[in-house]
Design a protein around this nucleic acid. Structure first.
Lengths: 152, 152
DNA sequence: CACTTGCCTGGAGTGCACTCCAACTCTTTA
DNA sequence: TAAAGAGTTGGAGTGCACTCCAGGCAAGTG
């Protein structure tokens, strides 16, 4: 509940699905886990779990051993959040995180990985679209029936 | 493996994701579970499980107790497959199946249920689109780096 | 008649992505 | 100084959607 209100500098936002957009406290550089919970909409459990499975770059610690997230961490979590929303398996995200850790010589493979995912997303959009047609058709039938019974 | 080849009457198809489209054996009216497996791409386990949880209208049986699916069942499985592809939870599909069983007085609620799902699908399409932008951006960066190193 | 194939059942197991628990430490507030 | 609150850990538990297993029955083939 310790929400830090920074002056309205810039307004980078978190894009958690339907949640109202949460302003990132800009100007600060180290965030507690609860601040990151606030910002990302993920639970603290999940944040720690992401770290355990290697989905996070090394998260800094305070002198007492508590996590202190940086802006770069928030950027990374934004990307992870998007990949997650588009259904990329956690294992693939971990793979991508590994590639990032390995440095620039993995650019080509990162490109391949993201391209494959992009194809997947495109395919899924097409799939959703075609289902939308079926839904429209069904809903129209029910709506027609309703209107008919209302007229009766 | 007992695939029934019907003469090419009409060509209604099954829309299982990337699988090649399977022609429905038209002209026949009762299908074994393995034929339905072939047609839907679902496993026999899953088909039996759908029945257990109430996601299927009553499936007919042969005199020896084996399932005999009808064309109506295949139509239903087409719809279920689409709802599934668009991420409708099985519990919601079961709810819809119940409404269908209850008859015409549930038209209004069926309309509501499908409309809600349609909204969901639309929202997800928008979400996927916006992620596509991020992916394009990232992939461009990697591609540029690759081209730069190829020139070097 | 043996064998293979296809299908049946209830119930247990799997994989994924979290989600929670118990027991603890550290910091802040009354 | 006592109590509340935020954070720590490893490991166990949860919910979803299958997925598989053991053991058995029925029909067709050599």
């Amino acid at each position: 509940m310790t929400v830090i209100d920074s002056p309205p500098v810039e307004v980078p936002v978190c894009l958690e699905l339907d949640r109202q957009r949460v302003r990132r406290p800009e100007g600060r550089e180290r965030f507690t886990i609860s601040e990151v919970v606030e910002y990302t909409g993920l639970s603290a459990h999940t944040l720690r779990w992401y770290e355990r499975i290697g989905l996070m770059p090394h998260v800094d610690r305070s002198h007492t051993g508590q996590r202190r997230y940086t802006c770069r961490d928030l950027d990374w979590l934004d990307l992870v959040g998007r990949l997650r929303l588009t259904g990329m398996p956690v294992a693939d995200m971990v793979r991508y995180a590994e590639l990032v850790r390995q440095g620039e010589e993995t650019f080509a493979e990162r490109e391949r990985l993201l391209s494959a995912h992009r194809d997947d997303v495109r395919r899924r959009i097409a799939e959703l679209r075609s289902t939308l047609d079926v839904l429209d058709y069904k809903i129209d039938i029910y709506a027609d029936a309703r209107r008919a019974s209302e007229r009766a």
